[in-house]
Amino acid sequence: MTTRDRLLAIVVAIAWGLNFPAIHLTLEQFPPFLAVALRFSMLAIPTLLLVPRPSAPWRWVLLYGTGFGVLQFVFLYRAIDVGMPTGLASLVLQSSAPFTVVLAAALLRERVSRRQALGVLVAVIGLAGIASHRAGLDGGTTLVPVLLTLCGGLGWSIGNLGNRRAMQAAPGEPLRLMLWMSVIPPLPLLALSLTLEGPTRIAASFDGLTSPTGLAAIGGLAFTVLVGTLGGSGLWTSLMSRYPAGVVAPFSMLVPVIGIGSSWLLLREPTEPVELVWGALVVGGVLLGSIAPRRARQSAFGTGTTSAVAIAATPSPRPVSPSPSAVVAETVTGPPAADESAASASARL
C-alpha cells in the first residue's frame, strides 16, 4: 500500500470518527428520529433523480437499507439523545463486526475459524465489561444507552448481510448500492418521528436554525452526509478496489480512536480509563478476527488474486461494502463458497 493511500485511509477514518461529534451537534437541535430522516433524505432525493438503480434484487437492497439505515441509526441516535457519550458510542458500535460473524454463521452457514471465534469472544468480553461498568453508574441508568447502541450494532450487522447478498448479485456497484440504500429509511423514519416525537416537537426543531446551536446542527448534518458518507465512502471504495480488505480494513479501527479523541477535544467529553481498557479489548478482538494470518495473505498475493478479502482462496475479485464495520465483518466471516454463483447467492438467506 502506497504512502498516499495509507494517508487516504487515515483521512477516511478521521471523517468517520468525526461523524459522532457531528451527530451530537445535530441532536442539539433536532429530535433523533427526525434527524435520521433528514440525514437520509438529503441522499435519497438526488439518488432517485440522478443515480441509476443497482442491478441487485430489490429484496437485498431493502434488507441493507432496513438494517444499516433504519435499525442502526434509530438506536444509535436515540442512544446519544438519552445520554450515550459520543466517543463511547463510536466504540460500542464496533459490536456490529462480531454480530455479523454470528449472524453469518447462523443464517448463511458460513464457516467460522478458531481465530475468528476467538476474536469474537475477546470483543464480546470487552463489550460486556463496558456494559457492566455502565450498569454500576447512577443506579444503572447509564446502561440503557449502551444497550441501545448495541442494538444499533445489531442493526448494522443485519444490514451487512443484505449488503453482502446485494454485492454478490451486483458486483462492482458498491457506491450505487450505498446510495440506493439511502432511499429506504426516510419514509419509515418520518412516520416514526410523527408518531413518537409528534408534530409539535418536529415543528419546534425548525425554530432558531440561524442561532449558533441551529447552525451547528445544520453543519453536523451536512458533515455526516457530504463528508462522512459521500466523501468517506467514495475514498474507501476506491481503496478497496485496489487492495485486499486485510490491508485496508484495519484502518477502520482508527474510527473509535478518532471518535473518542474528537469527542474529548470538541465536546469536552471524557472517557473513563476502565472503559478505554475494555474498549481496547473490543478493538483487539475485531482485529484478531479480521486480519488474515501471514501465510494466508502471502497465498492471496502469490496467486495474483485481487479479491477484497485477503484470506479468500477464490481466484476472482469481489468488491466489498464501503462501510468500515461491514468491511471488517466481511473480512472476519470470509468469502462465500467458491462455487456459489451470483444467482444462487441472491436466492438464499
Rank of each mutant, 00 (worst) to 15 (best):
residue 22 A to L: 02
residue 12 V to G: 05
residue 37 A to I: 05
residue 38 L to E: 05
residue 13 A to S: 14
residue 30 F to R: 02
residue 19 N to T: 15
residue 6 R to S: 14
residue 28 E to I: 06
residue 23 I to Q: 12
residue 17 G to E: 11
residue 34 L to M: 10
residue 27 L to E: 09
residue 25 L to F: 13
residue 30 F to M: 09
residue 32 P to I: 01
residue 10 I to R: 03
residue 19 N to H: 09
residue 14 I to N: 09
residue 35 A to W: 08
residue 23 I to D: 13
residue 16 W to E: 05
residue 13 A to E: 10
residue 37 A to E: 02
residue 27 L to H: 03
residue 32 P to A: 04
residue 14 I to V: 15
residue 6 R to M: 13
residue 25 L to C: 03
residue 15 A to M: 15
residue 22 A to V: 06
residue 30 F to A: 14
residue 32 P to G: 11
residue 10 I to H: 03
residue 38 L to G: 08
residue 11 V to D: 11
residue 33 F to Q: 12
residue 11 V to S: 14
residue 28 E to Y: 01
residue 20 F to D: 04
residue 21 P to S: 11
residue 36 V to L: 00
residue 11 V to W: 07
residue 32 P to V: 04
residue 33 F to M: 14
residue 28 E to A: 15
residue 37 A to C: 09
residue 13 A to F: 02
residue 27 L to F: 04
residue 24 H to A: 15
residue 12 V to I: 14
residue 24 H to E: 12
residue 26 T to K: 00
residue 17 G to Q: 10
residue 13 A to R: 07
residue 6 R to Y: 12
residue 25 L to Y: 11
residue 24 H to K: 13
residue 34 L to I: 09
residue 35 A to Y: 08
residue 30 F to S: 10
residue 9 A to T: 10
residue 11 V to I: 12
residue 37 A to D: 03
residue 13 A to T: 04
residue 37 A to R: 04
residue 9 A to E: 08
residue 35 A to T: 08
residue 19 N to C: 07
residue 18 L to M: 13
residue 25 L to P: 00
residue 31 P to E: 08
residue 9 A to Q: 07
residue 5 D to Y: 04
residue 27 L to Y: 02
residue 37 A to L: 07
residue 5 D to N: 15
residue 8 L to I: 15
residue 22 A to C: 07
residue 18 L to H: 10
residue 35 A to F: 09
residue 16 W to P: 00
residue 19 N to D: 12
residue 22 A to E: 06
